[in-house]
Structures are given as structure tokens and as C-alpha cells.
Design a protein around this nucleic acid. Structure first.
Length: 204
DNA sequence: TGTCCGATTGGT
DNA sequence: CCAATCGGACAG
């Protein structure tokens, strides 16, 4: 199990600025593909290329937790400024990581569903208890990256959890396809919105 | 306070 | 196909 990129290269890359996130979620989601999610923790640094993401556009979007303007302790971060982490617990055992998008007051978010591990693979594997796939799927991704409730509300522009532009060699334009979102069958017409974006050939 | 259910995963 | 597992949302 070997890293593809030295973590030192990645943490030196420029972070994505606040304005990047200040657009509707369905615009931010595909733009995130190819960028690199980094998490610096006491156990070590892990990082991976974002290859799958989904947009949630509350309050109109029935699949969004903030549908209808629903503002609760859980959804509160989504109503704040963009560029913050919205991390929530579901199914009694999984943590899911989102990036808050849109103008402040507009509860948009992008769920990061899969990354391609680049650095800290040994730590990721340990956190995953040796199971594969390492970071494919929203809950596997957070487990591998050590993301959980303590990270909810973190500022991606200034904290230990952040997103950087890819280094030379990993910065080729990303080709992607858009499909319906996963696991939102309860959302009526909204289930059909093509707001799941995946890099071509990465998961299907 | 009680009930229902989930932006998932892993095993049968 | 189904169980795991528990906090959030909402009705009463």
C-alpha cells in the first residue's frame, strides 16, 4: 500500500477560495471533481482526489435536509456562509461529509461520495480495518479520512479539513457524467434530477 | 415522550 | 434481500 503523492506536496497547494463555493450546488458539485480533499489529524495526513459528488439544493429540493427551509440544529450549517463542512450522522452508524455551497442563507450543499486515495493510504486502510474499497461510497470515504461529527461546521478555507487544487500531473481536465442521485427515492420528482456527478470510468 | 425512518454498508 | 443501530424530525 503506497502513496501516489507525497502529502507534503498536497498540503502546500493553494486552497480553494471561499468564492468557489459561493455558487449553486449543482455548479459546485462537478467543479469539485479532480480537486483534492485533505485532512490533517493527530494520527496523520490523508488526502484523495474527489471523483464523485452530489448536489442538494434546498429549500426547493425535496431530497435536501433543508427542504422547505427546515432549519434545525443539524441543518444550521447549511444556512451559513459557503465553504464550511456539513457532516451528519445517519443509519445509526455512518457519517456523511458535505461542502456548504450557495450564498449565505441559501441552504445548498454538495455530498462528497467518493475519492481516489492519494496520500496516507496506510492510515486510511487502518481506519477502514483493512476493508475494501477504501474510499468509494460516502460513509467509506469519511471513515477512511477520519471525518466525523467533530468536523461538522469546520471552515474548509482555514481549518485542518480542506480542499486544494491538484498539483501538476494530476490537473488534467476531468471528464464526467451526470446521473440521478443515490438513495433519494423518497423525494418525488426530485429523485430524477441529474445531480450526481462522477468522473468518467471511476465508478459507473 | 413515542414513533418512524434514513443522502449506507456489509453479509446472506 | 435484509439487518445493523441510533439521532433527528415531528406528532401528540
Amino acid at each position: 500500500m503506497e502513496d501516489r503523492v507525497d502529502a507534503r506536496i498536497l498540503i502546500a497547494r493553494p486552497r480553494v477560495p471561499r468564492e468557489f463555493y459561493q455558487r449553486r450546488a449543482s455548479t459546485v458539485a462537478p467543479a469539485l471533481l479532480g480537486l483534492i480533499l485533505v485532512h490533517e489529524t493527530p494520527e496523520g495526513i490523508t488526502a484523495g482526489r474527489i471523483v464523485e459528488a452530489e448536489a442538494y439544493e434546498g429549500p426547493e429540493d425535496r431530497a435536501c435536509h433543508a427542504f422547505g427551509g427546515r432549519r434545525t440544529p443539524r441543518t444550521d450549517v447549511m444556512f451559513g456562509p459557503p465553504g464550511y463542512a456539513y457532516v451528519y450522522f445517519t443509519y445509526g452508524m455512518h457519517w456523511l461529509f458535505n461542502v456548504v455551497a450557495g450564498e449565505e442563507g441559501l441552504p445548498h450543499a454538495v455530498l462528497v461520495r467518493s475519492i481516489e486515495p492519494l496520500a496516507g493510504l496506510e492510515l486510511m486502510s487502518r481506519r477502514r480495518r483493512g476493508k475494501l474499497p477504501l474510499a468509494e461510497g460516502p460513509a467509506r470515504m469519511t471513515q477512511a479520512m477520519g471525518i466525523d461529527g467533530k468536523d461538522n461546521g469546520k471552515d474548509l478555507v482555514s481549518s485542518d479539513l480542506y480542499i486544494v487544487s491538484p498539483p501538476p500531473g494530476l490537473d488534467a481536465p476531468v471528464e464526467y457524467i451526470a446521473t440521478e442521485r443515490i438513495g433519494v427515492d423518497y423525494s418525488g420528482e426530485w429523485r430524477h434530477m441529474p445531480w450526481r456527478f462522477i468522473e468518467k470510468g471511476s465508478r459507473q
